[in-house]
Design a protein around this nucleic acid. Structure first.
Lengths: 205, 205
DNA sequence: ATCTGAAGTTAGTATCGCTAACATATGTTA
DNA sequence: TAACATATGTTAGCGATACTAACTTCAGAT
């Protein structure tokens, strides 16, 4: 009674793992075609089920995309924490590392990144998305405070963390939008990240 | 033989001004429903024509959205140049003013702003979009150079202009995505813009 | 052994993007 | 002025899509 991996034919009427396989199919399609050209039908074809099946697990197309977006935020956060492990505490290195992860994620998963931020969906009413985002942002704030040698987050830390976030967020979008062709804007990412970290965190205020 | 304004019934078989009215209807709908919930049919209803009519003027839905995006970029650029008129040359004021316009545009026309940047469409192959964007960016570079007291744009100016652009771009997206609820992040936009301008342009490198 | 509910299916609806074929008006030219 | 060519509308229809309703399958609890 082997379970069906990916999109192969089932031997049993029930699928067994449809929800997570639909999420994976959705994620893959969002990357391949872009979030605005994703279709539920195609995800169904990949998962090898009828087009009505998803509605036993999600109440709409939007909810499927939402699940993918949430998984993306969690992944992004995990990558961030992992990268932090490699840097010594209280240094600018850690700020730079977080920015590197942010941009790297956007570039390697532009479809999901757009889902997480670029869509017109009002994310404000999706509590889980907001919470995960806040959670990640809190990590940045903490690191900024530590650069100051403080263990508690003050208002200046929030301010600086916010400047950093805006910057890497914009940088990520510009990169995945192809606004930075190598010809007209040769970009040394590492250099830029260090530069901005110094300008923002390196000199207080 | 009065021409039909907006979506009222025509007295003649031909519309007379369909192309521009479709663009306007598209723009309005993109704002109201978001770029991802725009439909050609609905634009047709607004313009008071059949659903096949647009295809005499645009070859696809994408091209309609593209036209709206382009118009948006032009509008944004015009607002920028207008605002510059009000500031004395060679001052940080001008940098701040451009940032203010950028963010203000995004906030007041989030739908169009997302069309201009947030979509997965590969804008790189739409020459007109790229050119308009480059054109606007060149203005920023020039202003940065002038802050240095130089009339010619050097590499450092390009670098700094790029940092500024990334920042306001990210800030704009975070704002329209509702990531900055007033409660958790009370944002004094003007203060933030001045701060970032000083950090980036105010001290060379 | 039966019942119940979760998780599939088929079939069908409304909407959408787009095309083909046809209709109408307008401006050019004989 | 009449005929034609062209631009710009229309209707009708196709295939894809999101979603629902009603039915089927199957596993687990009693």
């Amino acid at each position: 009674m082997e379970k069906t991996p990916h999109s192969e034919k089932r031997d049993s009427y029930h699928h067994g793992d449809l929800r997570s396989q639909l999420i994976e199919a959705t994620r893959a399609l969002v990357e391949e075609k872009g979030p605005d050209h994703f279709s539920v039908s195609e995800a169904c074809r990949r998962a090898g089920v009828s087009t009505a099946a998803p509605y036993k697990h999600f109440k709409s197309k939007e909810e499927m995309l939402h699940a993918v977006a949430l998984a993306g935020m969690v992944r992004q956060r995990e990558q961030m924490l992992a990268e932090l492990e490699t840097c010594t505490p209280g240094t600018l290195d850690r700020i730079v590392a977080m920015g590197r992860v942010y941009v790297r994620f956007a570039v390697s998963e532009p479809g999901v990144f757009r889902l997480m931020f670029g869509l017109s969906e009002d994310h404000a009413d999706h509590v889980d998305l907001v919470e995960t985002g806040d959670n990640t942002f809190a990590v940045v704030q903490r690191e900024v405070a530590r650069c100051r040698g403080s263990m508690t987050v003050e208002e200046t830390d929030v301010h600086q963390a916010f400047l950093l976030w805006s910057f890497v967020h914009g940088l990520s979008f510009l990169m995945i939008d192809g606004k930075l062709t190598d010809t007209k804007m040769p970009l040394d990412l590492e250099h830029v990240l260090v530069d901005i970290a110094q300008r923002v965190v390196g000199q207080g205020r």
